Simulated scan of single mutants.
Amino acid sequence: MDAPNLNRLRYFTATVETGSFTRAAERLGVAKTVVSHQVARLEEELRVALLKRTTRKLHLTDAGRRFHERAMAILRDADDAFAEAAQGVETPTGTLTVTAPSDYGRAVVAPAMAAFLARFPAVRAEVTFDDAVLDLIDAEVDVAIRLGWLPDSGLQMRRLGSFRQLLVCTPDMARRAADALSPDALGAMPWIGNRLLRHPLDWTFSREGEERRCTGSPVVMADKTPATHACVLAGCGLAVLPDFVVAADLAAGRLVHLLPQWSLPDGGVHAVFPEARFRSARVRHFIDVLADIERRRSA
């Protein structure tokens, strides 16, 4: 993008943020006529109205709202590029915004963030640990960590690693299941289902080319992974949980891995980004830190 078009994006976004050409001009230190003329030129080049003009206020059109989101992303990338070129391309600065599922966020992303911030003290972070899938551009997120099997969304992504899915329960519950030597024999046991999953009670186990299906009988249906985890620890029943959620419980003997000779499909760990030609140093270095943690965790 050439300099005039980049400047027009700045005039347009300043106008949207301030609500008028006059205040945008004051913010940018130019004449009001410059701002209004450049926004008009932008609309002419795009052949679409971006703003509705009234005597009192400017309002975005639907096309203007979509364009504003993209313009903000382009300007953030450009600002990052200039800032990092001035300080050295490998010196992360600014604010890193990250979203991740609540369970993975607490177990893996938080320690990764601590290691990253200790290494690059000029960076600040904003984190959201939530199971909702955010629109990265609308939420102004630098990187989202997403687990499992991703649909083709058109977003850019990098696979960081994988996690194992483990069938677990308390030691007391394991004694009740002691006679069940194969997955299909566990269907009558009390199960805890996680509604976040597409098929929370249907599982296919494999061993040396052999597959067995198991459909659990739920006594509890939980809304999220932390709730599922809590119910398993309380002894409500069996559940399938990611390895990073139950690793400490298995090591401490609070939970038992049932049928360890059988395996469930692994899930992927992915870093997902808004589409951009330029990826800021803070994002690249944070992903490298997280990928290194994933490699050591899975080793």
Rank of each mutant, 00 (worst) to 15 (best):
M1R: 02
A3W: 06
A3G: 05
N5I: 03
A14E: 14
E17Y: 06
S20A: 10
R23N: 08
R23C: 02
A25V: 04
K32C: 09
T33F: 11
T33H: 12
V35R: 12
S36T: 09
S36Y: 08
Q38S: 06
V39L: 13
A40Y: 10
L42C: 10
L42G: 10
L42R: 03
E45N: 01
L51H: 04
K52D: 07
T54G: 11
R56M: 10
L58Y: 10
L60E: 04
D62F: 12
A63N: 08
E69R: 15
R70L: 07
M72Q: 15
M72F: 04
L75H: 08
R76H: 14
F82M: 11
A83K: 08
A85C: 01
A86D: 15
Q87R: 15
Q87S: 14
V89T: 14
E90V: 07
T91N: 05
P92L: 07
T93E: 01
L96F: 10
V98A: 07
T99N: 11
T99I: 14
Y104W: 14
A107K: 02
A112F: 12
M113W: 03
L117F: 09
A118D: 11
R119D: 06
R119G: 06
P121V: 07
E126T: 08
V127Y: 06
F129I: 13
D130F: 13
D131A: 08
V133N: 07
V133T: 15
D135Y: 02
D138I: 06
V141E: 07
R146C: 02
D152W: 05
L155R: 13
M157E: 12
R159D: 05
F163S: 03
F163E: 12
F163Y: 15
L167F: 11
C169I: 02
D172S: 10
M173I: 06
A174P: 03
R176W: 03
R176Q: 12
A178C: 06
A180E: 13
S182W: 00
L186E: 09
M189T: 00
P190L: 13
P190C: 00
G193N: 01
R198A: 14
H199Q: 05
D202R: 14
W203C: 06
T204Y: 03
T204F: 03
S206Y: 09
S206M: 13
R207T: 05
G209P: 07
R213G: 07
G216F: 00
S217F: 11
P218T: 12
P218Q: 08
A222L: 03
A222R: 00
D223Q: 05
K224I: 10
T225Q: 15
P226L: 11
P226D: 07
A230D: 14
A230F: 04
C231S: 15
G235W: 11
A248Y: 01
L250T: 03
A252K: 12
G253N: 03
G253Q: 01
W262T: 04
H270D: 15
A271L: 13
V272K: 07
F273P: 00
P274C: 09
A276F: 03
R277G: 07
F278N: 02
R284A: 15
D288N: 08
V289L: 04
L290C: 01
D292A: 15
D292Y: 06
R297E: 07
